[in-house]
Every structure is written in structure tokens, then in C-alpha cells.
Design a protein around this nucleic acid. Structure first.
Length: 856
RNA sequence: GCGCGUAUAGCUCAGUGGCAGAGCGUCCGCUUCACAUGCGGAAGGUCGUUGGUUCAAAUCCAACUACGCGCACCA
């Protein structure tokens, strides 16, 4: 084969990739089992972070593909049975949004199509475009085993998802509950805490006067007296500062810090909630920041997570005034109902001005949550969702990294991981979208109706403080009955004693009351129902004397008063509570990240198939971007530990982020992105790989410049021409893995030097790659090859080649250094090295450079 | 608010307790038979600021400044 003067990537790359695919060596089962090293060594596995089916290759993917391919190719050459398993993620919300956008162009919504047709359409889309991104991976030379390709909605993968769900459910870690959650009004679904993006927004801080109630005999609701006071006919008020005045419609208290001297004597008194005209209490809570605003917080339990927490402690009512559609609900005064939150804000501010209750407005910049998929403003709203308890899982995930069983590179990323796990909240895993894994839960259709009709008559033996949250969930305070999640309880009519319904406990909370001191009035503020509590304790423990040393606690049970839902892999035949056959599956689907968390073992067929799982799990390295450490990596770790009882991977490599030259985020919508496919087209895959790898350092983000790729291209040409020079001198045929120059005695000084430098380079490159220092490895190799080999040795060799007694030796050394360099360069620039290798005069060359022995 | 990272030539970045480096760009000179995607040469830097440790600091330490990122109970 004739080698052209200049290297042409276009002529080589597709040809070589096909050659590799045909060889079958991407598949570990087809790797030759032979010689020395290979038989002893085992498997080396990387599972790809599955890109979304909606994605197309961007610089982040490209960089990560390069990293993974370098690792895999090196290990393959070292003789490991290497598996790089490719696949894609169904990406629930992201994909659904893409199809919804398509429909919008046709003037339709997903509701026009209906769920079934819509899902069908997503599948069609997936068949057509779903593998686009993986084909782009081929373009940069990714040596994935395409015969093992996986999709997170494959049939066996769905089985894994169900099994995992059931496992957690049986552990008692999955529960349903009414909570304040993050809601995207556009996507019409709940989101987990990690699926938000906070953006800095200029806004206002409104200072609103809440008039104080002096006369405690005033009625609690709507009365002329209240309206008069609320209308400004008072000089006594407390001022709250808020960024969202519209949420005041759902206020059920105002709160101050217990140590705030300014308000100490107001705690326990009441204020009038303007515009709504009802009285709400002033409470004390440690969460209140004395320094913020006026030091007074309006408590809106339904629409703020912090307020919700405070409300839990103080037993406050929760009013839902913003609905799923992002509009004000009918729980608010009529004049605000159905307004969008922004409209309501405007009107409320105006109305407050009219009655002179708006003290002042300040400019204020704060961070506002947006949906990470559609960029809509997120609302906090109370909603009934499914949650996964994180307490135990977080401990597991924390422990295994603390113990060093899983290592992060660079190590500093462990900190964010630990911080998240330490402050974790339960994971909201249900989503109200259509595309995804439906919850394996079935409901009895009758139950809701049945319970509704009997609500008013309900009582419960032993109840103390019943609180109705909504029609379905009730919270009762009971003495400790020893009840646990999943236990059934019976409803009885408190007058007749007739039992008319059953329910299942969905949540148990223990609250320590501490010492009850009847004389100490402090407790009256903290536990505003103390009187009732004491009475209750006396009722339940008549034999006990309640005195200043009494310690007690309260259990709060939440339970579902409908027929309990059935969690099962397959649809059950009948309701196990009422026996009826009208069962329907829960509509909600699981968070995409719930299924993604199973990736490292579900890809191998868990829980049904064992073969691959036993060979390739745990995987060796997970290489991924830093922004999904908690969203994905942490969840894989606890899923692996809990479900497989083994770590999912030994090492987490967090790769650098590719930024623009100006240090800005690469973004398609901002037009600041660079398309790696264009680079490949322009400079070749090897040049692109080398240029990027050259810049991968330990700490740095990469400010991308095309100049680096140009350098890569120039280097490829240098390599190409060095090879041409070596071959020009007709070195004669050699063995594929020849070595042993160290034993030859009559070496020239230049010979000795280049061989010595080569050995040093090999050591350095091996060390660098073990430490994920791809940039250093590339730089070392570059320097060696260009400046030591080409500039010095090749130049010297020109003279040596003219002397007969050193000619043979020199041609061999030239070839040896070239061959060894090709091996060292192969993981970085696989195409050109393979192409040159195929041109070398090597005896018995039946195969490819890709599986040649790695230099050690 | 807390935490992390970065700051070195015009640009992108290496670097090390002991003479300041590469690639690209710029300027000058070379078609010499591997390569003009090349070769030879040159210009260009108070190594973010201020202190400290040291015989010696761009390097270690502290504070500060700027930029980037993450987290927070961001009202």
C-alpha cells in the first residue's frame, strides 16, 4: 500500500471502523484468549452514561466518549476482557417535551391524542431518532460492544425497575404522602429537589402590614370588624417582608424568632390576614432569620418548603391556593380565583396599596427555581405523591465512599456528594407524565366513593387530635399502639361502635413531647395544644400521674382510608381488601432517575439473567459529568449496594466541563456550542480526540479552542510522515512484538538515548493514565514523539543509515520505536495508528493494533 | 451566607522551593530527497494583589481581588 504525502482522515476512518467492527473485538466474548498476560487477567467494564434519546452529540459527550475509549482501548491492549456497554435513556420529561413540541406544530396537545396514541408516537420517534447519538459515537471511534446495546425502556429493563420498586416497597421505604413538592405547571408534573435550576432574578421585596388583633374575642373569619381593621383603621401592625405577596392568600401564621426581642411579647397573639380577613396566630420558630427583612415571616405551609416544615411543628393548617395549572384556586377569595400567579401578584399589590397596608417596596435579587427540562417557573404546591425514604439509603451511600470502596477522581467532588446525602429529603419518585415506567401499583376503583360517604361519621378508638388534610389522608394522633407502616386499622363509629371501614398506615412519625410541666407556661407556646394533649394523656393513661417529670411522646399516623393500593409486578385479579374486580393501575410514572439508578446492573439483565452480571458487575470506572453526581451517581451507588449488595463501580471519574474560549457554558440555544461532528468532518476524528484529550487536566475546566484540534491534525500528519520515513528505509520484516534492544551491545549513543527515553515515556504514560491525567499523557507522548524521536533520533538516523555497520540496527530501532509509539498513541488516536500499523512490514500480522500488547 | 476551583506570553494551557515552558498566533529566514500540516531563528511574561515562612517563593502559608462552579432554611 502506498502512503500519501499527507494524512487524509476521510479516506481512513470509516474504513478502519468497519474493519474493527468486523473483527468483533469490541465484544469481550470474541477477544482472542491467548498468550501470557491475557489468560491471567480478567474483565474490565465501563457502562456508558446513557445519553438521552433526544440528544445529539455535544462536546461533553465527545469528551466523555474520548475518555472512556482511551481507558477501554488501553485495557483491551493490556489483555483484559474489555466491555464498554452502550445504551440510551428514555429520559421521561425531556422526550415527552420533544414530542409535545412536534404535536404543537400540528396544533395538537398530548391530551388530544390520548395516552395510548401518544406513547405509540414516542416509540415511533425513538425507533427513528433514538440511536442517532450512538451512531455519532461511532464517528469518534468509540469501541463499544454494540451487540449489548441497552435502552432503559427495554422489556427486561422494565422488569428490573419493577423488581427494584417492589424491593423498596417491601422494605417499607416507599410510601405515598401529601407533601409540598416541586411542581412544573408546564410539564404538569412533580419534580425532585435535584431537578430544579435556580436562576438569579431581579425582583422586589414587598413589606406588608398585618394588623394586630387586640381583642381576642373578635371572630376568626370575615366580619365587618375585621375588615375595618384590615382596612387600615388601626395603627398597630406587624410588618412582613415577602418576595411573593400572592402567596399571602394561603398564610396560616406569621412567625418570628423566639430570641427576637422586638417581637417577644407578641408571640401567641393574633394578626389579621389582609385581603382574606381572617385571624392567624403569631408563632415563634427557630428557623426565622432575625436579620432578614423585618424578622417576621409569613407562613404559607402549602407553597413553601420551609413554611411547610414550620407548619408541621406548629400544627398549622395548610391551604392550597395555587393549583396544578399555576392559577389561584377556589380556596382564595373570589376576586383572585383563576388568576395566574403573576396576575394575582399585581392585583394583590394594588389592593394592598388601596387599603394602605403596603409599607414599602425594595429592589431585591434572589434565586428562583426553574424546571430543568422546560425552563418554566416551578411552584411549590401540596400534592399527593410517592416517595422513597432516603434515610437508610443515604447512610449506605455515604458509608461506602467514606470507607474508600468507591473513589472519586478528583477527590474534591466527594464533598458535594456527602453534603447532599447529609441534608437529604425523601425522594419524590412519582411523575405525572405519560412517557416512562408506570408505577406497579393498582387501585380499587370503589374505595374512594365508599370512604367519602362515611367521612362525617368517622371516629376512631383512641384518637386525640384528628386533622383532616384532604378526603383521603387523615392524620390522627394516638397513643403508641405499636402500629407500623402497612398495618391495617379499623374505623368505628364512636357512638354506635360499628366498624365500617379499614385503612392502611402509610406513615408513622414519632414526636417527642419531652417533659410536661404544667406550671411552666413556656410549653404553652411551643405546643399550642398542650392542654388537649395533657387531657388526652390522662384519658389514655388513667393510672399514671401526669406531673412535672412526665416524659411522653406522640405518634402521628397517616393512613390511606381508601382500600389500600396493591403493589405487584402484575395486575392483581381482585382487590385484596374489598374483593371487587374494578382495579386500575396508577397513572403516574417513575422519575427517570429511578430507572437510571439501576443502570450498572439492569443493563446485564438483572434480576433475571445472571451470566453477564456475574462477569461484568461491578463495573470498573464510571466516567461522567459533575452535574449529575447526586442526580445519578449517588443513586446508582445506593441502588447497587441495596439491590446487588455490591458497589456498582470502583471509581467515579468526573471529567472536566467543556466551556467556550471565553469561559462560558456551551449552549446550543445561546449559539455558543461547538459541534464535535463538525470538527471531525473538518480535522478528522483523531485530531479531534487528540486535541481534546491534550487539554484534559486534573482540576481545570476546558476552555475549548479549535487551535488544539489543529495541533492534533498537524500531529497526525507528523506521525504519518515519520512512519513514511521509517518505511522508506525498507526495514525488512519483523515480528509483531519484537523487543530486546536493551540486550544488544553495539548500540550507538543516539540509539541508547532514544530507547531510554522511550522507556521513560512508557512509564510516565502508564502512570498518567492510571491517574486519569489524560492531558499529561498526551503531552508526554507528543513531546517524546515529535521532539525526541523526530527532531533528534530521526535526524541522527539519517547519518547512521548511510553507514553499513549501523544501518540494520538503525532501521530496526526506527521501526521498534515507531511501533511502540503507535501502541502508546492508539488509545488516543486509534484510526491513524491502526492504519499505519496495517502498513508495517510485520510477519504473521493477522490482526489489528487494537488488541496488540500494551507496552509496560 | 457557606464551600470548591482557577488566576503564568496576545490566545489556550503545562510547570516546579533553585536560570520562566509548550502549542497556536506574530516577525525574520529557508521549498534540504519523511513532513511547508514542515525546518531554523526572533520578539513577547514583576507568574492576580498584599503580606508571611525560607539562604532562596511563580511554587508553601495567610488575607484580599476577579472570574467560574456547587450547596443553603435563597421569606
Amino acid at each position: 500500500m502506498r502512503m500519501e504525502k499527507a494524512y487524509d482522515s476521510k479516506e481512513v476512518e470509516d474504513k478502519i471502523y468497519n474493519f474493527w467492527e468486523k473483527s468483533g473485538f469490541f465484544n469481550p466474548d470474541k477477544l482472542p484468549r491467548k498468550n501470557d498476560l491475557r489468560s491471567k487477567k480478567k474483565t474490565y467494564t465501563i457502562v456508558i452514561p446513557p445519553p438521552n434519546i433526544t440528544g445529539s452529540l455535544h462536546m461533553g459527550h465527545a469528551l466523555n466518549a474520548i475518555v472512556q475509549d482511551i481507558l477501554i482501548r488501553k485495557k483491551r491492549m493490556e489483555g483484559y476482557k474489555t466491555l464498554w456497554l452502550p445504551g440510551t435513556d428514555h429520559a421521561g420529561i425531556a422526550t415527552q417535551n420533544v414530542i409535545e413540541k412536534e404535536l404543537k406544530k400540528e396544533g395538537k396537545t398530548r391530551f388530544d391524542l390520548g395516552k395510548e396514541k401518544f406513547i405509540e408516537r414516542v416509540w415511533q420517534w425513538k425507533e427513528k431518532y433514538g440511536n442517532t447519538i450512538l451512531n455519532q459515537f461511532k464517528k469518534i471511534g468509540a469501541s463499544c460492544d454494540w451487540s449489548r446495546i441497552k435502552f432503559t425502556m427495554d422489556k427486561d429493563y422494565s422488569q428490573a425497575v419493577k423488581t427494584a420498586f417492589l424491593h423498596y416497597y417491601e422494605r417499607g421505604w416507599i410510601y405515598q404522602g401529601e407533601r409540598v413538592i416541586n411542581w412544573c405547571p408546564r410539564c404538569q408534573t412533580s419534580l425532585s429537589d435535584l431537578e430544579l435550576e435556580y436562576k438569579e432574578k431581579k425582583g422586589h421585596l414587598w413589606y406588608i402590614k398585618y394588623p394586630l388583633v387586640k381583642n381576642s374575642k373578635l371572630p376568626a373569619r370575615h366580619s365587618p370588624a375585621l375588615e375595618a381593621l384590615a382596612g387600615g383603621q388601626t395603627t398597630n401592625y406587624i410588618v412582613v417582608a415577602t418576595t411573593r405577596p400572592e402567596t399571602m392568600l394561603g398564610d396560616t401564621a406569621v412567625a418570628v424568632n423566639p430570641h427576637d426581642g422586638r417581637y417577644k411579647n407578641l408571640v401567641g397573639k393574633k394578626v389579621i390576614l389582609p385581603l382574606v380577613n381572617k385571624t392567624i396566630p403569631i408563632i415563634a420558630d427557630r428557623l426565622i432569620d432575625i436579620k432578614f427583612g423585618t424578622g417576621v415571616l409569613k407562613v404559607t405551609p402549602g407553597h413553601d418548603l420551609v413554611d411547610y416544615e414550620i407548619a408541621q411543628r406548629h400544627n398549622l393548617e395548610m391551604i392550597k391556593i395555587i393549583g396544578e395549572d399555576g392559577k389561584i384556586t377556589k380556596n382564595a377569595p373570589i376576586q383572585y380565583q383563576n388568576l395566574k400567579t403573576s396576575e394575582a401578584q399585581e392585583k394583590i399589590v394594588e389592593d394592598l396599596k388601596k387599603i394602605n397596608l403596603l409599607e414599602k417596596i425594595e429592589e431585591y435579587t434572589h434565586k428562583v427555581p426553574y424546571c430543568y427540562r422546560c425552563n418554566s417557573r416551578i411552584e411549590s404546591i401540596p400534592s399527593r405523591q410517592w416517595f422513597l425514604k432516603m434515610e437508610r439509603l443515604a447512610k449506605i451511600a455515604e458509608g461506602i465512599v467514606k470507607k474508600g470502596k468507591i473513589k472519586f477522581y478528583p477527590k474534591r467532588f466527594e464533598k458535594g456528594y456527602f453534603d447532599w446525602l447529609k441534608n437529604i429529603r425523601d425522594w419524590c419518585i412519582s411523575r405525572q407524565i405519560w412517557w416512562g415506567h408506570q408505577l406497579p401499583i393498582w387501585y380499587c376503583e370503589n374505595s374512594e366513593q365508599k370512604i367519602k360517604n362515611t367521612t362525617s361519621k368517622m371516629g376512631f378508638a383512641g384518637d386525640v387530635v384528628p386533622q383532616v388534610f384532604d378526603n383521603k389522608t387523615r392524620t390522627y394522633r394516638l397513643r403508641d399502639h405499636g402500629l407500623k407502616i402497612g398495618n391495617k386499622v379499623a374505623f368505628e363509629n364512636s357512638i354506635t361502635g360499628e366498624i365500617f371501614g379499614t385503612a392502611t398506615i402509610t406513615e408513622v412519625q414519632k414526636t417527642t413531647v419531652g417533659r410536661i410541666d404544667l406550671k411552666d407556661k413556656k410549653h404553652w407556646k411551643t405546643y399550642n395544644r398542650l392542654e388537649e394533649l395533657i387531657a388526652a394523656f390522662k384519658r389514655h393513661y388513667p393510672e399514671k400521674e401526669i406531673n412535672t417529670n412526665t416524659s411522653a411522646w406522640i405518634y402521628t399516623y397517616k393512613f390511606d382510608a381508601s382500600c389500600p393500593s396493591i403493589v405487584n409486578e402484575y395486575p392483581p385479579k381482585k382487590c385484596s381488601t374489598c374483593g371487587c374486580k374494578k382495579l386500575k393501575q396508577a397513572k403516574d410514572v417513575l422519575d427517570t432517575w429511578f430507572s437510571a439508578a439501576l443502570w450498572p446492573f439492569a443493563v446485564f439483565g438483572w434480576p433475571l439473567k445472571k451470566n453477564d452480571l456475574e462477569r461484568f458487575y461491578p463495573t470498573d470506572v464510571l466516567s461522567t459529568a459533575r452535574d449529575i453526581i447526586n442526580l445519578w451517581v449517588a443513586r446508582m451507588i445506593f441502588s447497587g449496594m441495596e439491590l446487588m449488595e455490591k458497589i456498582p463501580f470502583k471509581v467515579v471519574y468526573i471529567h472536566p466541563t467543556v466551556l467556550t474560549k471565553e469561559g462560558k457554558r456551551m449552549s446550543k440555544s445561546l449559539g455558543t456550542g461547538t459541534d464535535p461532528l463538525e470538527l471531525i468532518e473538518k480535522y478528522g476524528a483523531d485530531a479531534t480526540r487528540f486535541g481534546i484529550a491534550y487539554q484534559i487536566g486534573k482540576n481545570q475546566d476546558i476552555r475549548f479552542t479549535e487551535e488544539n484540534i489543529i495541533m492534533g491534525k498537524k500531529f497526525c500528519n507528523k506521525l504519518w510522515n515519520a512512519a513514511r520515513f521509517v518505511l522508506m528505509n525498507k526495514p525488512g520484516w519483523i515480528d509483531a512484538d519484537f523487543s530486546g534492544f536493551t540486550r544488544i551491545k553495539n548500540l550507538m549513543p543516539a540509539d541508547k538515548k532514544i530507547l531510554k527515553t522511550l522507556n521513560k515515556t512508557i512509564k510516565a504514560v502508564n502512570k498518567n493514565l492510571e491517574n486519569f491525567e489524560f492531558g499529561k499523557a498526551a503531552q508526554t507522548l507528543y513531546h517524546f514523539f515529535w521532539h525526541e524521536f523526530c527532531d533528534i533520533y530521526i535526524e541522527k538516523s539519517k547519518k547512521q543509515l548511510q553507514t553499513t555497520n549501523s544501518k540494520l540496527q538503525t532501521t530496526k530501532i526506527l521501526l521498534y520505536v515507531l511501533l511502540t509509539s503507535l501502541k502508546l498513541f492508539h488509545p488516543f488516536i486509534p484510526f491513524i495508528t491502526e492504519e499505519i500499523y496495517q502498513n508495517l512490514p510485520i510477519k504473521n500480522k493477522k490482526t489489528c493494533l487494537m488488541i496488540k500488547n500494551w507496552p509496560i
